[in-house]
Amino acid sequence: MALKIIVCAKQVPDTNEIKIDPVKNTLIREGVPSILNHDDANALEEALKIKDMYPDTHITVITMGPPQAKDMLIECMAMGADEGILASDRALGGSDTWATSNALSAVIEKIGEYDIIFAGRQAIDGDTAQVGPQIAEKLGIPQVTYVTEFEMDKNMKDITVKRALEDGYEVIKIQTPCMLTAIKELNNPRYMTVGGIFEACKKEIPTWGAKDLGVDPVKEVGLDASPTNVFRSFTPAPKGKGIMIEADSNQEAAQKLLINLKAKHVI
């Protein structure tokens, strides 16, 4: 029996490159490259490793986003995924994690059969780590988050994973179908291959809207359906500039620093 794996991915702005408009206090998005979210690359890599072992495994990468998110799906297919599906519709815009998980679980239900769903733990733009577990909840399947090691029995059903904790780890057994969210310790994502890029560009990427998914834009997806809304957004105030220590020698600099710390009663 060939395994069917679904990978949930997100196209995100590279936050290391993000700059703030000092006048308007808004993000400057222009010229900021979009990338495959880091944890999602680990999620895909784990699926690809399974496919390396069992070549008849079928990997479908799904995402929700604007039409240009297709570029990221092409990247995923160039790495080795079989298929990419994009959920894109104005009616999906403004979805919070609850509404996003409604849309993505509808995508998965439309795909039909699956054994394992891999997702990245969190996306670097929102950092919520909520969509993976919430998809699992909507689909009624068990989950393990923060997965750092994955092992599947030959019966293709029993899975053993390591789950990272702040002060160690847990070893957990789970059966398919299940949701596993990946962190970067899980593996090292592979690069796209030239042949892969060539093949990926030839593939059709279906785009599904709210109607295709049968989700209600008033009650299930989009801004209005979302239980949470942005009340205000702003940038943190910069802390005032401190004292630059001027000294003729390193010893003098160290001494001046310690005098200041002593004067502040912090040492």
């Binding site: 994690t97 609850w98 577990p133 989950q143 702040e166 239980p227």
Partner: peptide, 23 residues
């Protein structure tokens, strides 16, 4: 927002159909 809180809270919020704000 620990590894356990961030595993549990999203499921609880989704099952109660209410909003959750992370971290």
């Amino acid at each position: 927002a620990t590894h356990i809180g961030r595993d549990l809270a999203p499921r609880v919020a989704a099952r109660l159909n209410t909003g959750l704000t992370a971290d």
